[in-house]
C-alpha cells in the first residue's frame, strides 16, 4: 500500500468518523518496499492540494524514514526551472528534485506487511502482501 493511500485512509468504524484522532492510521511493525513506478508530474500537481502534510510527516517519522521538510512544497516547486539550453521544456516541463522525492515517498514507498492502528479506538487493520483488511465484524459497523 502506497504512503499516498495511507494519507487518505481513516478508521472504518462509525464512531471514529467524528474523532480527529482516527486520522492518520499509525503503521506498526511495518515492512516497507520500493515499487518502481513512472513519475507522473500532472498527477502530483493534482494531488498536492489534497495532501495532509503534517500527518504525512508524522507517518514518515513513525516509519523511520528521513524527515520531510516542515512546509508542503508548492506547485511551482515541482517543476524544474527551465534552463535556456533545453528547448522542449515549454511543452513538457521536467520534474524537479522535489517532485522526484515526493514521488519516491508517495508512490514508490509501499507498506508490504504490518498493521495499521487507529489513534482513537486502537483497532488494528492487518496488512498482508500490501493488501489491508478493512472488513469489520458486524458489531462494529
Amino acid at each position: 500500500m502506497k504512503l499516498l493511500t495511507l494519507n487518505f485512509l481513516t478508521c472504518a468504524i462509525k464512531t471514529c468518523k467524528s474523532s480527529p484522532s482516527s486520522f492518520p492510521l499509525h503503521p506498526r511493525d511495518a515492512e516497507l518496499e520500493i515499487v518502481e513506478a513512472d513519475l507522473n508530474l500532472k498527477f502530483l500537481e493534482n494531488i498536492l492540494p489534497r495532501l495532509m502534510w503534517d500527518e504525512l510527516r508524522v507517518v514518515v517519522d513513525e516509519l523511520g524514514l528521513p524527515t520531510l521538510p516542515p512546509t508542503i512544497p508548492t506547485r511551482a516547486d515541482l517543476v524544474a526551472p527551465s534552463s535556456p539550453t533545453s528547448s522542449s521544456s515549454s511543452s513538457d516541463p521536467a520534474p524537479s528534485q522535489t517532485a522526484r522525492d515526493l514521488h519516491r515517498i508517495l508512490i514508490e514507498t509501499c507498506v508490504r506487511e504490518g498493521k495499521l492502528v487507529c489513534g482513537n479506538c486502537g483497532h488494528e487493520y492487518a496488512v498482508k502482501e500490501g493488501v489491508a483488511n478493512f472488513l469489520l465484524p458486524a458489531h462494529l459497523v
Partner: peptide
C-alpha cells in the same frame, strides 16, 4: 492499491479524497 473491504460497511477514506 488493494483493500479487502465490504462496500456495504462504508468507505474508509477522509472527505474529499
Amino acid at each position: 492499491d488493494l483493500f479487502l473491504a465490504d462496500a456495504g460497511q462504508g468507505v474508509p477514506f477522509r472527505a474529499g479524497t
